[in-house]
Amino acid sequence: MLAVDSFTPENTSNLLKRVCDRVGFDPVEAALLRHQTNAVYRLASDPAIIKIARPDYSIEEIQRTVDLTRWLTRMGFPTLPLMDIEQPIIIDGHAVTIWPYLPQSRPIGTHELADPLLALHGLQSPPIALEPFDAVAAIRYSLEAETLLAPEDHEFLSGRCNDLEVDLESVHFSTTPRLIHGDPQHGNALIGKSGIVLCDWDSIALGYPEWDLITIEIHSRRFSHPEQDYREFCRIYGRDIRDFDGYPVLRDLRELRMITTNARKSPPGSRSAHEVQERVAQLRRGEGDAAWSIL
């Protein structure tokens, strides 16, 4: 099994070939789409996407994603289904999943995420054991594992996490915990034959819908999506998270999690590492609305 620091495109391309050999696909000229949370390849000869999980994702976590996706599909929820192959596929301890490729003709607007997200928050709890959403624990896990940040930046982010954990105790949520996506955003949705479908369920959890709503708001603001489009999202969903008393705390925690997660995953010297370091510098300068580059 590859270690975290050897989870590189050169090594995952070899894993891709072995996956294709096992299921009868052709890996020639496969395109690498992403190499952050997962190694994501699009095959040239078959309409398929192959996702190879990072070494710090357990087989049990990917099995949960598979089971949850199949349950959502049975429920008729608008999700990208898995391909009809026994999954996950295990190659040298790495969990691999295979999905249909949906060609995309245009970017997805923020407002198009409202209906599927509202439907998700209205679902019953699935017959699958899910972890409770815990932003603080996720931040601390990433801080413990990262090797990118300067010591003073690491200490700054750790102290900020401690302060926000205290602030979170005073936040009063409006609903009981329920099924949430965990990372709903433009890059985790696709245009399907019948409309928008959600995908990338690796962060699914039981939690408060406010965590999903704050993620939408941050992605819209930080990645320069039109403000009018975000206001339309709020109209369709029926709520603007910026009106929530706990908005500043949830915003700061979610942004801190985005920074620390990418610090853990970004190789030193990479474009993503530079972006993480710039985000930390902005945070230290108090630039709360500075634009970020997508990773």
Rank of each mutant, 00 (worst) to 15 (best):
E10L: 10
P100G: 04
P81V: 01
G238E: 03
L206K: 09
A150V: 02
P177G: 04
W292L: 07
V23G: 03
V4Q: 15
S194P: 11
A95K: 05
T73S: 14
V23W: 00
R251T: 00
D245W: 05
H111K: 11
L190V: 00
L168N: 06
L33D: 09
N262P: 07
L15Y: 10
D245G: 05
V197P: 00
A114N: 00
M1S: 10
M1L: 01
G246Q: 02
A53Y: 05
T79E: 04
H219R: 11
P268R: 11
D167F: 11
I49A: 00
L164Q: 07
R221I: 10
R239A: 11
M258L: 12
H172L: 13
S13T: 13
D56F: 07
A44M: 12
P248V: 00
S158L: 12
R271E: 15
E217P: 11
R279Y: 10
L157Y: 07
Y247I: 07
G109Y: 15
E165G: 08
P268H: 12
Q36A: 12
L179P: 01
G182P: 02
S158W: 14
A48I: 08
L164I: 02
D289S: 13
V40I: 09
P78D: 03
S270P: 01
T79N: 11
P78V: 01
A44D: 14
R42M: 07
E217L: 11
D84G: 09
T110L: 13
D115K: 15
A39Y: 10
L148D: 02
H181Q: 02
F173Q: 02
A95R: 10
T69E: 02
P81G: 00
Q282Y: 08
W99A: 04
E275S: 01
E146F: 02
A39L: 08
R140Y: 10
M1H: 12
V4F: 14
D200P: 00
H154D: 11
G187L: 12
L179H: 02
V197S: 08
D134Y: 04
P100T: 07
R221M: 14
D67W: 07
R106I: 13
S174W: 00
G238D: 07
E287A: 15
G122N: 13
L143E: 06
D92H: 09
T12P: 11
Y141W: 14
F133V: 02
E227A: 09
G207A: 04
R140A: 08
Q185V: 12
E112C: 07
R284K: 14
Q228D: 15
L256E: 05
S270T: 05
E146M: 03
E144T: 14
G207D: 01
L157R: 01
L32K: 04
P209F: 06
G182N: 02
H225P: 06
R242H: 09
T12V: 05
L164G: 01
L198Q: 09
